[in-house]
Write a protein that binds this DNA or RNA. Sequence first.
DNA 1: GTAACTGCAAAATATTTGCATCCTT
DNA 2: AAGGATGCAAATATTTTGCAGTTAC
Lengths: 142, 142
Amino acid sequence: MPDSFNEILRRNQLSVTDSRLAILDLFTQRNAALAHADIEKATHEKYDRVTIYRTLQTFVEKGIIHTIPTTDNSVLYALCKDTCSNGHHHDNHVHFICDECGTTYCLDNVIIPPIVLPEGFIAERKDVVVSGICKSCNRTQL
Amino acid sequence: MPDSFNEILRRNQLSVTDSRLAILDLFTQRNAALAHADIEKATHEKYDRVTIYRTLQTFVEKGIIHTIPTTDNSVLYALCKDTCSNGHHHDNHVHFICDECGTTYCLDNVIIPPIVLPEGFIAERKDVVVSGICKSCNRTQL
DNA sequence: GTAACTGCAAAATATTTGCATCCTT
DNA sequence: AAGGATGCAAATATTTTGCAGTTAC
């Protein structure tokens, strides 16, 4: 597995460093969206706050991760799939935020139906964020 | 027109004050989403930064305005329609951010088609943010 | 060896809180 | 008159920038 992280970094002309591998690993482990603060905590402050900011920024620019819009003022990041590259992401991306546990999922295989805009508006990118109860919280409530 | 602002405030058990009327007026004039900084500039720093923070927070709680999720770290607010109240908003709300002029529109009459989620996920609220070229930027490009 | 990356310090920015004063009702 | 709202000061949190030292290649 860790080998594929090297792959990702090399493919994007980035040096392979501790912090970058750790952050990639974290995203993979969690398989959910993460905020800057989550990463800081999860790595137990092993890496400087600034390094995390810069790593996230670099990853977004390279199209390794993408940001997820949220209704509160937080910024979330999640791994991009292969179809993304250099900041360009595919349109049909659904995110799900659980009101119960707060976990944010990337539902890559949920299709966004076409949305009809008023005359004159041209859609370039569509972000859909659904919130409610996620699969695992739903289960524990039974 | 200004009379209806009084109405809105009274209906929500809020005192009618200068800053609140000015902010309501601004949202109506612009007919677009505004950030804290936009309001500060537009009112030419007549009101304290803190007052604007508190006013926006109060308005959100009362369901007079709502926040709009954005991909960058900014927080945007827009007027709610009558169907919203006390922090509860209707599901079918589409927002449009213009990549050209940066204006954020509330497209209240655009219908969000149903989205099929994976087994076990329960949708409570749906936020759709479309970005691209807005009507007026589209026109000027001809 | 060189360029890229990190960590520290500090600056800049954004947000929150407490409290005295003022304004709405 | 009383409660709510504002403005100021200051505390806290978040993000950005510069630079020297370190690491990857």
